[in-house]
Design a protein around this nucleic acid. Structure first.
Lengths: 407, 407
DNA sequence: CTGTTAGCGCTTTCAG
DNA sequence: CTGAAAGCGCTAACAG
């Protein structure tokens, strides 16, 4: 990109800059000299070993520090001590409100435990993720909290077992042994699915990003399928929506539309004709889920059908596996069916972003703050002592019922 | 808060941890020994002074580094060199998509210029802001980019003139002389206002958070008023909405409702009766804006009225000064007027969050990425050389027209 | 071309 | 109670 907009001088801001001030910050030696003592005592004072200092000296030091506006250099301190109280927080996507929620928990816990979080934003770029991870170890952070992309083990190599202590948030990474904290995906997906089923929705599409490499998506998808089994009269399908590929999104949504169109008039099992994006429904046959997770843009599977009840129109619901998917679906549905789209299709989402309330969408809210908080606590334990086995902390989601599923 | 959810051991993750590995990372001395040479040469190699090294030595060093998986310690490096390539990015509120956009620009520029951004999230807490700022200087960052809260000068003391180089984003802070980069607020507010006026809206409420301490809000409000002057047949008012105070929000919105209710039937100038929140309209009189910025939750001013044309019902629009305000308004309007609220009242917002498109709201989009990018460039110049006067970089907003103002 | 020598600012023995 | 001295890991003169 190019940055071309010119800037203007602001009369209000322009002013003579005081260039006379000594740019060099005071060091511990300066303070020692000012207080007429040795560096050691200053160091002791700084570290709260205030009991071993004579009241007099204590006063002189205090005064000297104030006079010089001295602030100890954490870098030097860290170099000497071997630990710098820095921990890295690698965030996959700050545009996802989930991440911001987790971050808030992380910050709170860091403050409580005396760490300084160094937050890095990979912005969904694996390359960035790699770069930041390496940068973090270069700055000798004491540990990292990783909300990984669909990374491969290698980029996480420096981390976890044998490397920097790490805790994974939301997702595990194959080959990396480390603590993990996140949503109880199985319970959350089941919660959502059951809610829809109990509300009488009998045509449910679970829409999820490619999940062959992301543990949390896998868990949600599997739990959705499980939940559907208990309701033989209803039908569920998984639709894979690759948000990173605009073309694929178009195709998948078109196929979904086509398939659903046939259902509005009670014509269960009819495939509107969209070829790619959603597998044909294989009506009247039980079909195991398509395990061919080819990583491609589209994959789908019908795993239960009972089309005897094709008398009444089906009640259709879309179950979004997370916030970004929900947003994509909502946008599309609105564009396709107009402002009244919610009267035709229900939407339920795991994740509860701001706009969900505005639009009136039922959601399973994640305890993001707690997730972040716990992650730091875990990391702290790892840093401090030698825990042995990796732990997995599952937190429960909460169903927020709104208009979308209440008709 | 309490963290009580228990965790479970995951069979999949549990495994013997390799505690045998040497936890200590290799140092430059280790590499020197391994390569059979002195530290200096290693340092030279690291710093790309590769031309002054014999090809042979170069090879040996390269090999040694790989064998030991050596990674130079940035802390030590920074300590010695006096600069550590760290810059701080203080974000007021990551929940505001604006901030995330800016952050993306910051990250890109940092990468391009070789800095490592240390992002700190004040989360709207002035105390956090202070803490982080002090922490940043303690870590000897080379500069800071500050998206300040309504801070007072003192907390920014260590920064700017005479302290750490700084550039302000979006807002200036009274008493702090530093570069600033942000939206051209005057132009943006005028753009929005004129759009509404041209579309025939003649009753406009500019809704803004308390602006006596926030320069960007001030600028927007002032520009709104200016723009209204050119349309004597229309009427504009400023409504102050303090999002940090739930009670005040309730009151202000109630008052706003009451006032607007009277307008739907063409009864211009009628005040629905809500006392607080919105000042009475002072119909038929030109009134200067109430400059008594008492910092309280409510303040308002009618500044032009021409109620001769009270024959036709007024066309009402709400102009939100930023995204968070827009969200608050949208929520309220939906709750108050139901799903069809947009047929009664138009909403236009400065800031263009995700949901604006979903809900169909016209917006003035800020060039957030560029703002962030430029901020880093400015900071870089400050760090490098001795610029003298503070600059003010104004970037233009872009009007995104949507259904809300197209009826 | 290459190694030796001082430190950067701080903590930490180890003797007073 | 207090201070001198020895580094943490690295870079930057200054000699070879």
């Amino acid at each position: 990109m190019s940055i071309t907009t010119p800037y203007r001088r602001s009369a209000a801001l322009a002013g003579p800059i005081n260039a006379a001030k000594p740019p060099r910050r005071a060091t511990i030696s300066d303070v020692a000299r000012e207080a007429g003592t040795g560096k050691t005592s200053i160091s002791r004072y700084l570290n709260g070993e205030t009991n071993v200092l004579s009241p007099d000296l204590r006063e002189r030091i205090k005064a000297a520090i104030e006079r010089l506006d001295y602030q100890p250099n954490q870098m030097a301190r860290g170099l000497k001590r071997g630990r710098n109280r820095l921990i890295g927080m690698l965030v996959a996507d700050l545009g996802n409100p989930y991440s911001v929620g987790v971050l808030q928990g992380v910050e709170a816990a860091c403050q409580a435990l005396g760490y300084m979080p160094l937050v890095c934003h990979a912005d969904n770029e694996v390359e960035m993720e790699r770069r930041y991870l390496q940068l973090l170890t270069t700055y000798r952070v004491e540990g990292v909290i990783v909300n990984a992309l669909g990374v491969r083990e290698e980029t996480l190599r420096p981390v976890g077992d044998g490397g920097v202590p790490a805790v994974l948030v939301d997702r595990t990474v194959a080959g990396v042994v480390a603590d993990r904290v996140g949503l109880d995906n199985a319970a959350a997906a089941a919660l959502g699915a059951r809610h829809l089923l109990e509300r009488g929705f009998d045509e449910i599409r679970f829409v999820v990003q490619p999940f062959d490499e992301v543990s949390s998506r896998q868990a949600r998808e599997a739990a959705f399928r499980d939940a559907m089994r208990a309701y033989p009269h209803a039908r569920g399908e998984t639709v894979v929506l690759d948000l990173t590929d605009g073309q694929a999104v178009e195709r998948t949504l078109a196929a979904l539309d086509a398939q659903l169109a046939g259902l509005f008039d009670g014509d269960a099992g009819a495939d509107g004709g969209g070829g790619s994006g959603v597998a044909d429904a294989d009506a009247d046959v039980d079909v195991d889920v398509d395990t061919d997770t080819d990583g491609g843009a589209v994959a789908g599977a019908a795993f239960h059908t009972d089309v005897n009840a094709r008398t009444a129109p089906r009640r259709i619901a879309l179950f979004a596996a997370n916030g970004p998917v929900a947003l994509c679906l909502a946008r599309h549905l609105k564009q396709r069916y107009g402002d009244a789209w919610q009267t035709r299709i229900a939407l339920l989402s795991i994740d509860d972003p701001d706009w969900a309330e505005l639009v009136g969408i039922t959601a399973v809210r994640q305890p993001t703050y707690e997730i972040g908080y716990r992650a730091v606590e875990f990391l702290h334990e790892r840093i401090a002592g030698g825990m042995t086995a990796a732990r997995d902390c599952l937190l429960q989601g909460e169903l927020i019922e709104r208009a979308s599923t209440s008709r």
